[in-house]
Simulated assay, not measured.
Amino acid sequence: MSRSLRRGALAATALVFPLATLAACGAGNNAQTDEVKPDTAATSVGDIKVQNITVVTQPDSGAAGPAAVTGKVFNNSSTAQTIESIKLPGTSAVVRLKPAKGAGPLTVPALGAVQLGGKGNASAMISSGLPSTKNGNAEQVVFTLSKTGDIGVRALVVPARSYFDQVAPTAPAAPSAPASPSGSASGSPSGSPSGSPSGSSSSPATGGTAGTGITG
């Protein structure tokens, strides 16, 4: 092969490589990630963005137990906001919000974010009102924030399997059995009489009248 032909082949190879790279980039910035994680809902209103919102049910179809709203809420403003409620319009679902630590309102810090679902994170639990037949549907989920107001998004309803096992809803702790009263009776009641009653009269003194003190 002549030197000029070799140069042409090298140039063609150099051109093909960046084209293949660009084709891979055209699949999206997270093309490799998308092969593992399914597409999830995201939207933004003003300084608030909600991302990766899903409704996760029990892993077994038809199984009783709670569901959960999962995802992440970003606050790009310099003022903290509170997530006042999360609702699923058209259902009777009641979503109970709980911060990652302690009690009180669920706050999205200024220039920060709150993760819903997963170990050690805040939670948005649905104790009832969401039929398991909703699996596979896109459910309307509305976040209400203290300053931004309502943010609605269509979230996929999925069972807690595969990737979503990491954010599976957990059943509330079963109430412990009530302890038996500490004052229950054991044996005979205290204070019961033993022997002859105190203060009863004794036998009269020999040769005298009982209670008179007079001797013969």
Rank of each mutant, 00 (worst) to 15 (best):
A20L: 12
K72S: 12
P38S: 13
V95W: 04
P89C: 03
L111D: 12
A138H: 12
A80V: 03
S192Q: 15
E84A: 08
V142L: 00
A80W: 00
P175S: 11
P169A: 11
V16R: 03
A122C: 04
A9R: 15
L15R: 02
A68H: 04
D165A: 15
D39F: 03
A113E: 11
A100C: 02
A64W: 09
S78E: 13
K72V: 15
V45H: 04
G26I: 05
S186D: 12
S194C: 02
F143P: 08
Q51N: 10
S77H: 04
V94M: 01
S202A: 14
Q81T: 14
P204K: 09
N29A: 11
V50G: 04
K134M: 07
Q81M: 05
G213D: 08
G117H: 05
P105Y: 04
P193V: 10
G102W: 08
A12P: 01
D34H: 10
T148I: 07
P89Y: 04
K134C: 00
S92N: 12
A9F: 14
A9G: 13
G90S: 06
A12Y: 02
D150V: 02
Q81W: 06
A14W: 01
K49E: 13
Q51S: 11
A68F: 02
P175G: 08
G216R: 14
K49D: 06
S146F: 00
A160P: 05
D47K: 14
A179S: 12
I214D: 02
L22V: 13
G129D: 07
G117V: 07
N75C: 08
M1S: 15
G216Y: 09
V153Q: 05
M1E: 15
T79P: 01
P193I: 11
S188Y: 09
P197G: 13
P197A: 14
A68C: 02
L111I: 08
A103H: 07
A168N: 07
S2H: 13
V56I: 11
Y163V: 15
G118R: 04
R96G: 03
E139F: 00
A113P: 01
G183A: 13
S123C: 01
L130G: 04
G118T: 09
K98S: 13
A138W: 10
S44Q: 14
A103M: 00
P66Y: 10
G65M: 11
P197F: 06
L5I: 15
V95S: 07
K147E: 09
T79L: 00
P175H: 07
A41D: 09
E139R: 08
K134E: 09
Q32N: 04
S146Q: 06
T40H: 03
L19N: 03
I214M: 03
A64E: 15
P172Y: 10
K119D: 09
T70I: 11
